[in-house]
Design a protein around this nucleic acid. Structure first.
Lengths: 120, 120
DNA sequence: TTCTAATGTCGCAAACATACGTCATTAATT
DNA sequence: AATTAATGACGTATGTTTGCGACATTAGAA
């Protein structure tokens, strides 16, 4: 994961040869949120009192096909689940996935807090 | 922004004709984080005790050119700033932008909390 | 003023994302 | 068994992102 160590500012700094697992996972999660349709879908699912079946595209400015693809993406990264019930599919937020999202970004956000009295 | 109101589950539901401003802004911020290099750059900037000048690509598995583009992207969305100082450019996290990021996602994350005893 | 070093910009190729019409699958209904 | 309705999968056109070498620009040094 790391390569040669070099010296800079008197400290050891690592050169990444590849991005770290965590960075890649966060990037994937961010990518899942990087389209307004997918944000809207998550909000929509959160706002409905029951898991939803039926055409979510009725509520979005996109075709059913396109919404279906966004649903698939959100599902594949684990942010939502789609439980088949007969002919219909009930979509819901996936609690575990949402947790992972919040924790992952929570950690990142703590990490990237700007230092108060930085000497620039 | 909204179109016809329809009835579903006894509640009024809106159909978006366009995604909302906020959804689009969040999506843009998410997109900025949707590449491991950009996550790594933010972490790197946060971790250095001073604003950094010099070749950040020394610490990443990418060419200087490519890193430069990622820096430009992060700058254009306001997550970092690059202050020219003579021949060098000192890169730093942009406090206001990072704040906006945290607040935006903080709100979204609250909004998309799965309901505990949802009838699925 | 010429040279060098730090950095940004351009332009291309390859990969990936988006949107959507059409088709396939499957569950219930008749 | 045939029909209908809900949904996902496929194919494809178009646009966007990524990565990078080569070139441009600029500040300071010689």
């Amino acid at each position: 994961m790391f390569a040669t160590l070099e010296i800079r500012n008197g400290e050891l700094m690592k050169k990444l040869e590849l991005f770290e697992e965590k960075q890649q996972e966060l990037a994937s999660l961010a990518k899942a949120l990087s389209h307004p349709a997918r944000i809207a879908i998550l909000q929509f699912l959160a706002a409905t009192p029951t898991c939803i079946s039926g055409d979510i595209s009725d509520y979005l400015p996109l075709s059913r096909t396109t919404v279906s693809q966004h649903l698939k993406e959100l599902k594949s990264i684990g942010l939502i689940q789609g439980d088949v019930e007969g002919l219909k599919v009930k979509y819901c937020l996936n609690k575990a996935g949402i947790e992972k999202l919040k924790n992952g970004f929570g950690e990142l956000f703590e990490e990237i807090t700007p230092i108060e009295n930085k000497t620039c």
